[in-house]
Structure formats: C-alpha cells, structure tokens
Design a protein around this nucleic acid. Structure first.
Lengths: 194, 194
DNA sequence: AAAGAAGATTAAACTAGATTAACTTTTATT
DNA sequence: AATAAAAGTTAATCTAGTTTAATCTTCTTT
C-alpha cells in the first residue's frame, strides 16, 4: 500500500505516532476501480468514506424526471462518499462513479467507529476536513445565487483547472447547473470577448 | 446561566462528566442581543461560534451589486457563525444579524481551541454537528438545481414551519433565491390550487 | 388616531437559460 | 480505413423568474 500521499495529507491536520499510523493502516483498504465503476450507488447504504490516491470520480444523482445532476468531482487528495448516507447509515442520495480508473483508500463504517475510539485525534482530523467541506458547500450556494452561469463557469475554470481538462463538458455543465447547450453558448461568447 | 438547553443538546452526541461540564461552562459566555444587532459582520474576523438559546438570526451577505442574499436562518438549538471565517480567522463573508432579540451561548476562538485540548470529546461533538451541517448544505444545493421555486418554497414551509411564521416574506424569498415579487406570485398560485 | 415606515401585492415588459432538433466533430471499435 | 458511438455546436422557440413601478396593507411611533 502506498501510504505517503495520505500521510502527507493528514500531516496538515494532526501528528500520529508510528503505532497509531500502523493501527490506522491496519483498518483501511486500498481498492482499485475501473472507469465507469461505482463506488457508491444511490439507494444503497454508503459503507465507506474514500480518500482518492489517483483517478477521478463524479458524485451525482438521478432526479424524479430521470435527469442526472452532478454534485461534485473528486481527484487525488480529495475525499468521496455520500456522507449523509454514511453518517446515518440510511440509503444514499447519490451515486459515486469513477470517470477514470481510480485508486482509493477506503475507510469502512465499522472500522472507522473503532478507529475514533482508539485514535481520538482522528476526530480532530475529520472535524477539520468536514469543516472545510461545509464552508466550500456554503460558498457554492451563494455563488449559485448571486452569479450568472458565465461567471460560475469562469470561477470553476480558475478554481479547478485540473478538473476542467479531464472531464467532458456536458458533465461540467451539469455541475454548473446548466444545460450542455448553454455552456457551449457561454464558451463561444467567452472566445469572442478575447 | 441557563445550561439545560445546551446540555440536552450535546447529550445527543456525547456524555460529559460533571467536571467537564463545569470546565466547559467556565469558557463560554451567555450574551443577549437586541433585534437588528449584529453578532458577526461581513469583513470582520469571526471570533465565535454561537449556540442559540432563544430568538432568531439571519445569515446573509451583500454582493458586489449591493444586493442582500440570505444564506440561512437560525433559531433555538441551532448554531450560528461564519464558520469559514472562524476556522481560518480571515474576514467574514457573511453578516449574522438578529431578527428578534436573541440569547446565545458564545464559544470564542481561543477558548474553544483550549477546550478541544482539555475535553477531546468536544472534537467528536463538533465533528458530528459539522457533518450534519454539511449534509444539509449539500441537499440544499441539489434542491436548488433540480426543483422549481414553487417546490422549494413548499419544502421550506414543510421543513421549517416555525421559521416561516417568524420571518418576513421578503427574507424568505431571498433565502429561496428568488425575488419577493415572484414569491408573492407563487403564494397566489398555491392559494388558487387549493 | 394620524402619519410614516416597512412589508406585500399586482401587472407589464423583459432576459437568462431551457428545450428541441438538426448538424458537426471527436473518440472508440471492428 | 470504416463505422458507430459519444461529445460538442448552432439556432429557433419557449418559459421560469427578474425588473420596474405603482398600489395596497400592516406595523410602529408619536
């Protein structure tokens, strides 16, 4: 198991002893998924939170009208899960699907509960991670309210340049909450403005 | 200080010893605000997270065009803050203003950091609270994407009936991301449908 | 009770973005 | 290389929600 990326990542938040590290890694699983495979399926109970080592996932749901809505993308050093389903152990609202072949470190529900008891610092780690995720989510709400689609697209490009290059445009449109046709129109407008 | 509501609340997540409770209450402040007073001001660094004992607050921001956008309301047993500002100790994106006279328990930044060291269980408490807040925020994003304003209004009424009664309509419109005029139109439509 | 301020309604004109449908380009498969 | 499938573009038409502006109603304050 390649532990470095995850150790580097958590080093931003907490410091673990060698024993704690060993215990931690004894409870997490490295898994590989192919392009198009699902890590979480809408309707199933989500049993894991997943740290991405490589690859790319999309989190989305299918609404009553059968329409797909992309909630977010995740790449290396990010997390992916349906947290609402995970914490309440109730059916997931979202699918999480790999849009490239993807390698993850998987924390399963039961093991994580045990780990919290054995390494209380992990509470701090996940508190801080979740705080940041919540703040990002709030900022997205206000962006959706006060900005036009064109401005949102510009910010998306600036904020996640790596994702923009890897993900098909129609998925970006879905993430931005607009149709692929309208994103096409925006791109032409932007190209004419320059 | 009336400790009961807060003790009842945290009892849902963690169990504290009497000594821990005493320590906790030695570090938090009870404060009273009048209608229209600000707990947090956009641009200032947010120094506290606040548990509401009574009253009602709105969290909002003023955009580049001078428009007010309401991010959320909080009533008794909820929290209010600008968490992004609080955790990074950088200028707040949001105002938090009382829309009724409001009584809060205030956790100041420095004290909370100390409390986390002294009562590690509080990490767990705030992890769980933040997880729930994050999930609610995600659900709001997907609602904003896939539902019409009329549907969103219906859900708001069903989910927060107490808030709907206490808050002027133009603020609810702002929270829903629509104009007060359009909310008026929706209400007439709903009244004709019945 | 009067007067002003704050909040809510109505209606007409307008626009950002959706829908539909045809077409083009790129990528994957044999 | 040929074909099909997936992704992206364009343009016409349509609609949910905005804007503007006038009017009405309900609170506050004196």
């Amino acid at each position: 198991m390649n532990k470095e990326p995850f150790l580097d990542y958590i080093g931003n938040y907490i410091t673990l002893s060698k024993e704690e590290e060993a215990l931690l890694f004894s409870k997490i699983i490295e898994r590989n998924y192919l392009k198009d495979q699902y890590i979480v399926q809408q309707g199933d109970v989500c049993k894991s939170v997943n740290f991405i080592l490589s690859g790319c996932t999309k989190t989305f749901y299918i609404d009553a009208a059968g329409q797909e809505h992309i909630v977010g993308f995740s790449i290396a050093d990010w997390w992916t899960s349906d947290l609402g389903s995970f914490i309440t152990q109730s059916p997931a609202d979202f699918h999480v699907q790999c849009i490239e072949s993807t390698k993850i470190l998987q924390f399963r529900y039961e093991e994580l509960e045990v780990l919290y008891q054995e390494i209380p610092k992990l509470e701090r780690l996940f508190r801080k991670i979740t705080e940041r995720a919540f703040v990002a989510s709030q900022k997205r709400i206000i962006r959706n309210f006060s900005l036009t689609a064109k401005e949102r697209y510009r910010i998306f490009k600036d904020t996640y340049p790596k994702i923009e290059q890897r993900v098909p445009q129609y998925m970006i449109a879905s993430y931005l909450g607009i149709t692929k046709e309208f994103l096409s129109k925006i791109k032409r407008q932007l190209s004419l403005e320059k």
